[in-house]
Design a protein around this nucleic acid. Structure first.
Lengths: 251, 251
DNA sequence: ACAAAAGTGTTGAGAGTACACCCATGC
DNA sequence: GCATGGGTGTACTCTCAACACTTTTGT
C-alpha cells in the first residue's frame, strides 16, 4: 500500500516491459427509427431499431451481436467506432457518443477483452436499402423484441437504451434520428416510441417546442400530404441555443 | 467494407494471434470536501478538492497527475479502480463511478495507453490525516486552483467536475461527500461550492428537501454549536425512494 | 441589548396538464 | 357532409424564486 517514488517508477517500467495486455475492442450500438413491420400492432408507424450481426464463428456462433471490432494501434477510440459504423452501414458523419467501458475478466470466454462501447443515431433516410452486403448477416431488430444476444451484449444494449432516453430528455438528440424535414407529429411519435410512453399531449408538446429553447424547430414553407389536412414540414434550428437551462432536479 | 462470415472469423482470429495490444490503465479522480485553507478568500468554509500525485519519473517528471495504474489481467475495471483508490487513500466502500475512456493514440508519449477513468466521492471524515504515506508525494488541491497536470489529465479532471455537477443536480450524490450527520447549512454550502454558484436561497433550499423525495433528510435530535443559534443535525434518509421522478426537460 | 446564525411564511410569475375546440383536406 | 388528421385556446394546478420575517443562542 505504501510506495516510494522509486517504487512507482519501477511499477510503471515493469508494466511497459510486460507483454500481458488485454485486447481492446469497440462495440457500437446503432439506433435508427425505421418503419414498423406491418405485423406488429402499435399505434405508431415507426419503431426504434438496432443493427445486429449474426455471428458466423464460435463462441456464440449463430447468435446475434452488436457490431464491433478491435482497436488499431494507431487509431483513437472514436476513429475505431466510426470505422466500425462505416463498415456496417456505409454512413459517415453521424452522431456518435461513447457509452461505457465493459471489462469483466470473463466477458469473452477466449481471452481478456475490454470493450469500449459507443452508441450512434442514424436517420433512416441515410441508410442504404440493406446494411452492408452479401453474406454478412446483418439485420435491424426492434429494441422491443430482441433476440438473445452474444457475450454481455444484452447488458450493453440495455444501457444504451437507457442513455438514449435520458439524452432525449434534455437534449435535441431526437433530430439525429429524423430526416432533415419532418412534421411535428413525426417528431412527437419519435419521442413517444423511444421513451415507450404513448400519451404525450399534442398541444402541450407543441407549446414546449415554441418556448423552451426559443425556436427549436422552424417551419419550412412545405407541407406533407397525410390522411387529412396536410401537415407543415419543420426542420431543426441549428442556431437555437438549446442550452436547456439545467433546471435543478435535486434538491 | 464488404465482408463474408469467413472473413469476419479470420479477422477475429488474427486479432487473437497478434501480440500488438494497447496497455489499459485506470485513473481515479478522487473528490473530497475539505476545510478551505485560511489564505483563500471565499464565503464558504469548505472547498472541493482532488487528490493528486506528483510524478517521480519521466515523462512529465515532477508534474502532478491523477492517481492510477494498470489493469491486472484477472481483475475487473471496477476492482482495479477500487484497488487504486485504496492504495492512495486507504479507504474502501466509497462511492465510485466510471467516467469516460480516453484513448487518443499519443496521449502517453511512451506507448499506446488507453485510460478508463473513474471518479470517487469520499467524505473528509473517512480520510486519514495525510493520504497514503511517507515519500509518495500526494496532496489535495482545490479544483478551483489546479497546478499544471501531466498527460491529458487536465481534460479528465475537467470532465469529472462536469459530471459531478450534473450528478448533484438529479441525485443524492452530495451526501457521499458529507459526514453521517450534517447541518442543513453545511449541505447547502456543499451544493454551492461544488456547483460554483453561491446564491442559493436558504428557505427555498430547505423547502425542496422537505418535499422532493419526501424526506430526503431526517433530523437527529442533536445540535451543533455555531456562532449563533445551534443548528440541528440531519442525516440522509437511505430509505427515501429518491427516484427523482425524471421531469422531462426537453422538449 | 445586540450580533450572528437558524429557521419560517407569503406572494406573484411561470411551467405543466387536461381537455375542448377550430381548421383544412379527400372522398 | 363527414371522416381524418393538423393545429389552437383556456383554465386550473403546481413549482419556483424572491424577500421579509421570527427564533434562539453567545457576549
Amino acid at each position: 500500500m505504501a510506495s516510494t517514488i522509486q517504487e512507482v517508477h519501477d511499477e510503471e517500467a515493469h508494466q511497459f516491459r510486460s507483454r500481458e495486455h488485454p485486447s481492446v475492442a469497440v462495440d457500437v450500438v446503432i439506433f435508427s427509427l425505421r418503419e414498423r413491420p406491418p405485423d406488429v400492432d402499435h399505434p405508431a408507424d415507426v419503431d426504434l431499431q438496432v443493427l445486429l450481426i449474426r455471428r458466423g464463428a464460435p463462441p456464440f456462433k449463430g447468435m446475434w451481436a452488436i457490431p464491433g471490432g478491435f482497436v488499431g494501434m494507431c487509431e483513437s477510440l472514436d476513429e475505431a467506432a466510426r470505422r466500425e459504423l462505416a463498415e456496417e452501414t456505409g454512413v459517415t458523419n453521424v452522431w456518435l457518443e461513447q457509452l461505457y467501458t465493459f471489462g469483466l475478466p470473463d466477458r469473452d470466454p477466449r481471452t481478456r477483452v475490454i470493450s469500449v462501447t459507443y452508441y450512434a443515431l442514424v436517420s433512416a433516410d441515410r441508410l442504404s436499402p440493406l446494411a452492408g452486403s452479401d453474406a454478412t448477416e446483418a439485420a435491424w431488430h426492434s429494441v422491443y423484441a430482441l433476440p438473445p444476444l452474444a457475450f454481455d451484449h444484452a447488458k450493453i444494449l440495455n444501457y444504451a437504451l437507457t442513455r438514449l432516453r435520458y439524452k432525449l430528455e434534455y437534449t435535441a438528440a431526437a433530430f439525429e434520428l429524423l430526416p432533415e424535414e419532418f412534421t411535428l407529429r413525426e417528431l412527437q411519435e419519435a419521442y413517444m416510441v423511444i421513451l415507450d410512453d404513448y400519451k404525450l399531449d399534442k398541444a402541450n408538446f407543441r407549446k414546449k417546442l415554441q418556448r423552451e429553447g426559443q425556436e427549436v424547430v422552424v417551419p419550412t414553407g412545405r407541407f406533407r400530404e397525410t390522411g387529412g389536412r396536410p401537415a407543415e414540414l419543420y426542420r431543426f434550428d441549428e442556431t437555437s441555443k438549446l442550452e436547456v437551462k439545467a433546471r435543478r432536479l435535486f434538491p
